[in-house]
Design a protein around this nucleic acid. Structure first.
Lengths: 244, 244
DNA sequence: ACTTTTTCCGACGACACGTCGATAATTGAT
DNA sequence: ATCAATTATCGACGTGTCGTCGGAAAAAGT
């Protein structure tokens, strides 16, 4: 006998289904087109049921963001376990992020929305706590790699920068690039930017080189590292993403 | 006699006033708290009048973003005119962005919102054209500096990167960092990131060093450049921002 | 002074969020 | 198996917002 009754398990499962339907709606129709009434209609549950799961529309969107971050943490964890120099492991995190965005754009999208609209006011405090926790998980995964690099001497912190700052720099660059792609793809193609995704990798390497994080691009065959990461850490996802 | 009648000028002026009221509301109450009815109430105009200026709520928010970009272009233009090496002029752009975000956070905020919510569907096509134009202005200002650096030999494009890519890298890093500050400041302080704004400058320098854009940080006194930029290009704004 | 055109108004319909009392289903005890 | 107690579900309702539209008011023109 499990800790939860049959009914309660059913309810828990339902939450996932509600989120799936909601996410599809969010992606197809935007935030404004995400309607609680229509979720009720499509799932053939009543609104009351939905409001037993989520205290408000904002709470629901936040739940999507939490799901997204959980998935990301999963990716990051696998990436962080890659066998290699710290900088290679950091590269693996970058690959993880890239695959994550490629394979789950709807998850990423929900994160962006919740971030922007400053919806936090109307979100239940437990959900907000979940969000915070997952975010810190992500941050922590990256941070520990930076620490490892410092410990083994591959990275000497430049003046005025702490470990956490390095994380912020990389995070900003990635986050900025991907949200740019999502929101201003039009402007990019207009300006002849054809392969923004591969671009991100190159930019990250430039940034790490700028920090003086050894081995520098000139001293190491990161193309090879890249292939190893894809093959050893994300073989399944590669196929899904259509990467060779 | 001007080309516009008195009445028409009055109407044009009114648009600015409407946007001011709306922006204040947006910043104080978030996107959800921005209500067309309340704008009408506060300005003591009818809703009909407001809908003569803006075809929808989204159109109004887009108008705010356009205003914001116009202001940014102004800042960027002044920065681009700084006398010095291309990399110094690029640094001036960074300073411009920093001051812009510091002094007009509400403008910046409206940009973020319009970007995220994929509101574009309901925006009038003229307004969308305005937005596109201003964005390209910004992009162009930065791009021409990159070109200048290439022309004078200060920058040799790394393999796999075009001029436009360099712009994208810097843009992403800045955009990402500032939106991170706006949306996740809490997470930053939790992780001991104390001075994110000065951090951005350091990260940008690292990125430019990574591109091999001469003169590198080690070869030039950019602290001095920074002081010169503040004093020569943005003396007024410095005081307002409370920078020494 | 009177007509035409422009501008302005605010009631109205449609729709969305979130609530709540009534209703149905499930559980547990006898 | 029966019935009471608890739990889960429903959907109509109140409130508020968006965007429209026909008529009132003001301005321009003659």
């Amino acid at each position: 006998m499990s800790t939860l009754s049959r009914k309660q398990r059913e309810i828990q499962q339902r939450e996932g289904m509600l989120l799936d339907v909601a996410r599809k709606m969010l992606v197809e129709q935007g935030y404004a087109g995400l309607s609680m009434d229509r979720i009720a209609e499509l799932t053939e549950y009543s609104k009351g049921v939905i409001y037993q799961h989520f205290s408000s529309k904002e709470d629901l969107v936040t739940a999507m963001a939490v799901q997204s971050l959980q998935r990301r943490v999963e990716y990051f964890s696998r990436a962080a376990a890659f066998q290699g120099r710290p900088r290679e492991r950091m590269m693996a995190i970058g690959v993880a992020e890239e695959l994550f965005v490629r394979l789950h754009p709807h998850y990423f999208h929900s994160e962006l929305i919740i971030k922007m609209a400053s919806l936090k006011e109307r979100v239940s405090s437990e959900r907000l706590e979940d969000l915070r926790k997952e975010q810190n998980q992500c941050f922590g995964r990256v941070r520990s790699i930076v620490q490892a690099a410092i410990d083994c001497g591959d990275l000497v912190l430049p003046p005025k920068l702490e470990q956490a700052d390095i994380v912020v720099g990389l995070w900003s660059l990635n986050m900025g690039a991907y949200s740019l792609m999502h929101t201003d793809r039009e402007m990019l193609v207009e300006n002849g930017v054809t392969a923004p995704l591969t671009g991100v990798r190159v930019h990250c390497h430039a940034l790490l080189d700028g920090y003086g994080w050894k081995p520098l691009v000139a001293e190491w065959d990161y193309e090879n590292s890249y292939r190893r990461i894809l093959k050893e850490v994300f073989p399944e996802e590669c196929l899904q993403a259509g990467l060779e």
